[in-house]
């Protein structure tokens, strides 16, 4: 199987079983947060995507439309991208994004991928997105008593930090 065939198979899976209509060209497909765990499970158990590649959370502040004040404001939210990979050629990477509201938590992938333990902890630590059912959701990089999440857009790079204990 070539990489293109694997990509077509992945797109077909998203469209048929996970209700994804639009596959953007320059971006990864956006999947409903309810399907997040199920999609990872299907990819791992039915299609053999066994390597846990990455999880990336990013923070998007509320974006008011500058031209139209009455337009609906896109609320502050997170976006979490996950990638899993299959072993050996063509080493296809299946990656998808999930929109997570500020007060919402995303189900953890730890029961499927042991690597989610540390990766999700890192994203929680730096961006602030919470993972539901995670066995040990502590800060990974920053000190335990750190306030704020450094990779959020409202956290300025010059924010004063407390002295190291």
């Amino acid at each position: 199987m070539t990489g293109d065939e694997a990509q077509r198979r992945f797109v077909a899976l998203l469209q048929e079983r996970f209700g994804v209509d639009e596959i953007p060209a320059a971006n990864y497909p956006l999947v409903d947060a309810r399907h997040h765990f199920e999609l990872a499970r299907v990819l791992k158990e039915e299609f053999g995507y066994r390597i846990y590649a990455f999880v990336v959370a990013s923070h998007y502040p509320a974006a008011p439309d500058a031209k139209n004040e009455n337009a609906e404001v896109d609320a502050e939210h997170y976006e979490v991208a996950t990638g899993v990979r299959c072993i050996g050629a063509p080493a296809h990477l299946a990656s998808w994004r999930v929109r997570v509201e500020l007060d919402q938590a995303l189900p953890t992938l730890f029961p499927l991928f042991a690597g989610a333990d540390w990766q999700e902890r890192e994203q929680y630590d730096l961006v602030g997105v919470r993972f539901d059912g995670h066995p040990d959701l502590r800060r990974l990089m920053m000190p335990e008593d750190w306030e704020g999440y450094p990779l959020r857009k409202d956290y300025a790079i010059g924010t004063a930090c407390p002295p190291w204990r």
Binding site: R50, I51, Y52, F54, L112, F113, A114, G115
Partner: peptide
């Protein structure tokens, strides 16, 4: 080996 790939070790 299974644990390694599940942890993302390459």
């Amino acid at each position: 080996g299974d644990l390694a790939v599940s942890l993302g070790i390459t």
